[in-house]
């Protein structure tokens, strides 16, 4: 009987150690998942979904709006930006290159939003930016 209790205690301890190892492994593999996916919207409609981690070579594309409005988007490995725009204030261009989900690129006059969703935002030092 005593021997059985010992086995149970030893078994439980071993199970706990194994569990801790599994937990550490799960956490490490989870935090490694950080695929930055950019979603490009025009007036609320999703135009494109771009996996920025999969981008090998930089390229540009143009989003056309009404009355000749346009925004030229530069897609690079791991980051995205607007390089040219027809809007008067060019806020979208001055937002520069984004690579995380903290602050989306927006062009209000042309109704464009470029938002990055990362697999794991827990590592980002910031939860938001005021402006």
């Amino acid at each position: 009987m005593k021997k059985k209790v010992k086995y149970v205690i030893a078994g439980t301890a071993a199970a706990a150690v194994t569990a801790a190892l599994i937990a550490v492994w799960v956490m490490i593999t989870q935090t490694k998942v950080s695929n930055a996916v950019a979603r490009v919207y025009q007036n609320g409609t999703l135009l494109q979904t771009i996996d920025l981690e999969a981008v090998q070579e930089s390229y540009t594309f143009t989003i056309e709006g009404s009355n000749g409005a346009y925004n030229t988007v530069l897609v690079e490995p791991g980051q995205i930006s607007v390089t040219e725009a027809s809007c008067p204030d060019k806020v979208c261009i001055s937002q520069g290159k984004i690579s995380d989900g903290v602050l989306p690129i927006t062009c209000l006059p042309n109704g464009i939003v470029i938002q990055i969703e990362t697999g794991n935002t827990a590592n980002s030092a910031l939860d938001g930016m005021t402006r």
């Binding site: 078994g11 439980t12 199970a15 706990a16 194994t18 569990a19 801790a20 599994i22 937990a23 799960v26």
Partner: peptide
């Protein structure tokens, strides 16, 4: 037991 514990962790 290991599975339950790892879920908890």
């Amino acid at each position: 037991l290991a599975a339950v514990c790892s879920l908890w962790f």
